[in-house]
């Protein structure tokens, strides 16, 4: 704990940490398990709509989803935001984008990052593909980021 030298204003810097052990459960757990095998799966509802990342419940009617389908590791940028200068907690230290990416054949979008490109190469509708993290942790970070598919 460091104390401010300002006698009138006592400040103490501290770090708040919650290292909770989280159980992902059968659906999210399966999604993470497959990520660690470099496979991307989604869940399918009765109308045939597919959600990636795997949703436990249909976001529209709350139906429990348990049917898994494998999807391609490519998708389309639905929206993005370019971060020229990454800030405190951002995982990528060079310029990158957060993006909503709809994997091919799916009916929802996944929040993730896009890297290895310049801002002006990126636009809504651009096709991107998964880049895997070498070290797998069975978390959403097993996808390192997405990158633009050269076409």
């Amino acid at each position: 704990m460091t104390k401010s030298v300002d006698k009138e204003l006592l400040r103490a810097s501290f770090k708040l940490e919650y290292p909770y052990e989280r159980s992902p459960g059968p659906v999210i757990g399966k999604f993470f398990e497959e990520l660690s095998n470099e496979v991307l799966v989604g869940t399918k509802n009765s109308k045939g709509e597919i959600f990636v990342p795997a949703a436990e419940f249909d976001p529209k009617d709350s139906d429990h989803l348990s049917e898994f389908v494998e999807v391609k590791k490519e998708g389309v940028v639905q929206s993005y935001t370019w971060i020229e200068k990454p800030r405190a907690h951002h995982l990528i230290k060079e310029s990158f984008a957060f993006a909503l990416i709809s994997m091919d054949g799916t009916n929802s979008a996944m929040l993730h990052m896009i890297a290895n490109c310049k801002e002006d190469e990126l636009e809504i509708g651009k096709r991107v593909k998964v880049v895997w993290n070498e070290e797998k942790t069975k978390t959403i970070r097993d996808i390192k980021y997405f990158e633009i598919i050269d076409e």
């Binding site: 989280r22 992902p24 999210i28 990342p53 639905q78 929206s79 993005y80 935001t81 971060i83 800030r87 907690h89 951002h90 995982l91 957060f98 993006a99 909503l100 996944m110 929040l111 993730h112 990052m113 636009e123 809504i124 978390t139 959403i140 970070r141």
Partner: peptide, 24 residues
Amino acid sequence: PYYMSPLWPDKTSLAALQAQLLMN
């Protein structure tokens, strides 16, 4: 906490995703 916060999307970036889409 499973799919999003481990990627540390900040409040500004999430809003920016919506603004970008509206502009597009």
